[in-house]
């Protein structure tokens, strides 16, 4: 027992380790103050009655949780957020894969095409959202003007004015912004796959689909996981797109959890309720990350 304590001590508290701790200290302090403290404070806010500036007043237990969970709008918003995330990430992954395949083929102008595909991702999300808001404008927007001018749709819808079209329009902007990221990651993975594998496939008589399914997909499997995980986290919390395009409307038809947190917290100054929703968001995303991490590490082990 004593020997093992000494050995532990010598292992974790030697001169080298002490220097490492010292060097890590600023990062740890920064992490604690900028990440752990706010998260802990949000948990506290969800359990306390707060004043209209978010200062803790008195312990209220689960009162705010019960209040939030008893409203229909909260559950609708949570389900909508899940649908929003799954739909957007799946479409981004599929489109990203198609674009990556196109960009992976040798042809003249491939370099220019790659640069053009990055533009939506490189531009800031609020600016992209504002541009799309103009595009969707019923009277003067590019989309409706084009539809009318070409005769495709003489009486086009008010894209952001009805629940279904507003949801689709908003999700499309999130997809438009996020596809290049997926495409770039997939492309990088595809380029790392050895050409020999494809040549072997050719010799064995595999067609393009078989090569895609049995060589490309397994070759970039871990990148698909990472990209979809990161995209899920960003999409779940895509405040900018929703807030700029619809502010959650019409009614609450495009509201997602993160915009609801903002509305309850900073527009209505009901910080306990906002904190409950933030905690729910935190729990969902943590669970999602853990599932992904588990799958990722299992895959790493299998490799």
């Amino acid at each position: 027992m004593g020997a093992s304590t000494v050995s532990l001590r010598s292992r974790y508290w030697n001169k080298e380790a002490q220097l490492a701790y010292l060097l890590m200290l600023p990062a740890v302090v920064l992490l604690l103050s900028l990440m752990v403290y706010p998260i802990a404070y949000v948990f506290m806010m969800s359990l306390y009655r707060t004043d209209r500036l978010g200062r803790l007043q008195e312990f209220a237990g689960m009162a705010a949780y019960l209040e939030v969970f008893s409203t229909r709008v909260f559950w609708e918003t949570t389900v909508r957020t899940a649908v929003w995330t799954v739909l957007a990430v799946v479409v981004k992954a599929v489109l990203g894969m198609i674009i990556a395949l196109v960009l992976n083929v040798e042809y003249t102008g491939r370099r220019t095409a790659r640069m053009l595909f990055i533009i939506p991702w490189a531009s800031s999300v609020p600016i992209s959202a504002m541009l799309w808001k103009w595009v969707y404008d019923h009277e003067f927007g590019l989309l409706n003007q084009t539809l009318r001018a070409t005769g495709i749709w003489t009486n086009p819808p008010v894209w952001l004015g009805a629940p279904t079209s507003a949801f689709i329009s908003t999700i499309w902007v999130d997809i438009w912004v996020g596809v290049p990221f997926m495409a770039l990651i997939f492309l990088a993975g595809m380029q790392a796959i050895s050409r020999d594998l494809y040549e072997s496939g050719d010799i064995d008589g595999a067609n393009a689909t078989q090569k895609f399914v049995h060589i490309t997909i397994p070759g970039i499997r871990h990148l698909i996981l990472i990209a979809t995980m990161l995209s899920s986290l960003w999409t779940f919390n895509d405040f900018n797109t929703v807030f700029i395009l619809t502010k959650g409307g019409p009614g609450t038809s495009t509201e997602i959890l993160i915009t609801a947190v903002y509305k309850h917290g900073f527009e209505w100054l009901r910080f306990s309720r906002a904190a409950v929703m933030a905690v729910v968001t935190f729990v969902i995303l943590t669970m999602l990350s853990l599932i992904y991490a588990r799958m990722f590490f299992r895959q790493e082990r299998d490799l």
Binding site: Y136, H138, V158, G161
Partner: peptide
């Protein structure tokens, strides 16, 4: 009223 009224706030509606 203008057909796109559901998508316009006060500031966006008045220019019509």
């Amino acid at each position: 009223v203008p057909p796109g009224f559901m998508a316009t706030t006060r500031m966006e509606a008045h220019p019509v």
